[in-house]
C-alpha cells in the first residue's frame, strides 16, 4: 500500500509524458524516413526529406512570413498591452472596469469568429488580404494576454517603487522607462514570447486573411491536403525545433533575470 502510494505518482507522470511526447517523437523519427511512406515500417535514417524541405521555397517563405508576423504582432501587442496595463493600473477611472472588460473580451471569442469578422470588414472596406492583415488579427487575439500578464504585475508594491522615483525627482517618462519597464522586464519578455508563439502557431485567421503570402501553418495545411508524407514530417519537426529553441532562449533569459533580481 505504501509502495503503491509512493510509486503511483511517478508511474502516472511517466505515462503522461509518454502520452504527451508520443506523437512528437513519432513525427521526428519519421522525418528521417527514406522511402515514401510517412508511417512504419521505418526504413531510414536518411536526410533526403530534410534536404527537400530546406530547398522548398514555399516552406522557407512560409517560415520567414511566420517569423515576421509573429515577432511584429507580438511586439505591437506587448507595447499596446503594456501602455494599457500601466494606464489602467495607475489611474482610477469611472470606466476602468468597462475598459478592462473590453480589452479582455477577445479572449472569450473563437479565433474563427474574429478571423471571419475581420475578413468581412476588410472586404467591405476594400482592403486586400496580406501579411499585414494577419498581423492585425494576431494583435487582436494576443492583446488580452499581454494586457492581463502585465496588469497583474503592476500592483501596489511596484507603485510604491515608482513613487519613490518620483519623490527623487524623476519625471513621468523617466519613471516609466527607467523604473517600470526594467522592473517588469521578465513579464514583458514572457508576454512577448507567449504572443509570438501563439501568432507563430495560429492557423484560422492566417488562413482567412491571406492569399499569396502565407504563413507556415497555412503552408503545412495545404501540404496536408495532398496527404501525409515524410516531407510533411520533416516540416513539422523543423517547426518543433524552432519552437523549442525559442523556449530555450526565453527560459534562459528569464532564469538570468530572476537570478539578478533574487
Amino acid at each position: 500500500m505504501t509502495a503503491l502510494y509512493r510509486w503511483a505518482p511517478w508511474v502516472y507522470f511517466a505515462a503522461a509524458l509518454l502520452f504527451i511526447f508520443l506523437p512528437v517523437l513519432v513525427l521526428i523519427q519519421f522525418s528521417f524516413q527514406s522511402g515514401l511512406a510517412p508511417v512504419p515500417p521505418f526504413d531510414g535514417p536518411s536526410l533526403k526529406w530534410w534536404a527537400k524541405v530546406l530547398a522548398n521555397r514555399k516552406i522557407t517563405d512560409g517560415l520567414t512570413n511566420s517569423l515576421l508576423v509573429g515577432l511584429g504582432s507580438a511586439f505591437v501587442a506587448t507595447v499596446l498591452g503594456f501602455l494599457a496595463a500601466y494606464s489602467l493600473a495607475r489611474k482610477r477611472r469611472r470606466l476602468s472596469g468597462f475598459y478592462q472588460f473590453l480589452l479582455m473580451a477577445p479572449i472569450t471569442v473563437s479565433y474563427l469568429i474574429i478571423g471571419m469578422g475581420l475578413q468581412i470588414t476588410f472586404n467591405y472596406l476594400g482592403l486586400g488580404k496580406s501579411l499585414w492583415a494577419i498581423g492585425i488579427g494576431h494583435v487582436v487575439i494576443n492583446l488580452p494576454l499581454t494586457f492581463a500578464i502585465l496588469y497583474s504585475q503592476l500592483g501596489e508594491h511596484q507603485a510604491n517603487i515608482e513613487r519613490a522615483a518620483y519623490d527623487l525627482g524623476a519625471g513621468d517618462w523617466r519613471v516609466v522607462l527607467e523604473i517600470t519597464v526594467p522592473m517588469l522586464w521578465p513579464s514583458l519578455l514572457a508576454a512577448f514570447f507567449i504572443a509570438a508563439t501563439l501568432s507563430w502557431d495560429e492557423f484560422v485567421i492566417a488562413f482567412l486573411m491571406s492569399r499569396f503570402d502565407v504563413t507556415l501553418p497555412v503552408v503545412i495545411w495545404s501540404m496536408l491536403r495532398s496527404g501525409l508524407s515524410p516531407e510533411l514530417n520533416a516540416t513539422g519537426t523543423l517547426v518543433f525545433i524552432i519552437s523549442i529553441l525559442a523556449v530555450g532562449v526565453v527560459e534562459f533569459l528569464l532564469w538570468r533575470s530572476r537570478k539578478h533580481h533574487a
Partner: peptide, 11 residues
C-alpha cells in the same frame, strides 16, 4: 509550444 497543425496531424 509547437505548431497546432503539426501536433494534430502527428496523431
Amino acid at each position: 509550444w509547437t505548431s497546432y497543425v503539426v501536433r494534430s496531424y502527428s496523431w
